[in-house]
Amino acid sequence: MIEKKVRIINKAGMHTRPASQLVKIAAKYKADFYIIKDGFQINGKSIIGVMSLAAEEGSELTLKFDGPDEKSAASEIIKFFEEGFGEP
């Protein structure tokens, strides 16, 4: 299992578009993917879960990956967060 802390850096936060992209990336991997915010954990493969975190700019999240391909899943998803979801 891999755990990693990330921060939301884009202005608009985790809104509909990045949430949808994130879910799509996660779906490519077998590994389970969870996001924890303020002690609240959701399944990162569910867009309704991801969006219900209401993660705005500056929020700190913990990502959890667990499964055979957790390494590649973690690297792609962490990169997506670090790039600010490709947004300003």
């Binding site: 936060g13 809104h15 209401a54 705005e56």
Partner: peptide, 11 residues
Amino acid sequence: DALMNANDDHL
């Protein structure tokens, strides 16, 4: 509700 409680307008 979760989104409406966010501090952020964008959300």
